[in-house]
Amino acid sequence: MSVLYGKPESLNDVPFTFCPGCTHGLTLKLVASVIDEMDMGDDTISVGCVGCGGYMPWFMNVDTIFSLHGRAPANATGVKRMNPDKLVFTYQGDGDLASIGTAEIIHAAHRGEKFTTIFVNNTTYGMTGGQMAPTTLIGQKTTTSPYGRDAGLCGQPLHICELLSTIDGAKYIERVAVDSPVSVRKAKKAIRKAFECQMAGAGFSLIEILSTCPTNWGMSPLESLERIRTEMIPAYPLGVFKDWEEGDK
């Protein structure tokens, strides 16, 4: 009997422990599938972060190091420089990458480090209980913006793809979503493109994935997917911001 669909080899057998409707599990499966399809499982090193994304290492069947809050890009710099022929990626949430880790991500891109960042943006700090992130939308209620995010006090949401695409060392930058089967297929292609950019030695690559947090948003899984479409995509337009093969977009 032939297997038509199975779990990627680059995931281990530990069941996902994410909340119902959370898209981390789906995203990790996409990453693992692309690693398998590129036949890179034996030659991949992943770098974890702090937050819900920090659960990544517990589910991946590739070499992994757990990294401090926001520091994954610095950690990955050390890993990749010592392993120039391996596939190296960081897996970071928006609290981790867009707040405490802004210096590390900007300078990894700035140096043109040849690793990939999978950036999961769900507009909140999930693990700590739903606090405001730099990516939280205007008016969004969180435990630390209980009256809704006020741009006058907290600024506008930070656009990481737009920011990083101004940096020369960043060679592939794309924002995708995982709200529908069509989007998920596009997300997978984007991850593959970023890994190929890395293995071609072109420079830094990052895929931002607009994701859900039903628990902290106080929404059902379906309502959460709908929120990606109705609130997040209008604020964070999807698309390719930088493509080393085609020049700047």
Binding site: I65, S67, L68, N75, A76
Partner: peptide
């Protein structure tokens, strides 16, 4: 901060 985390990554790579 970044320098020390780079040390950590390089050390992890042997």
């Amino acid at each position: 901060i970044a320098a020390m985390n780079m040390v950590m990554g390089a050390s992890a790579s042997g």
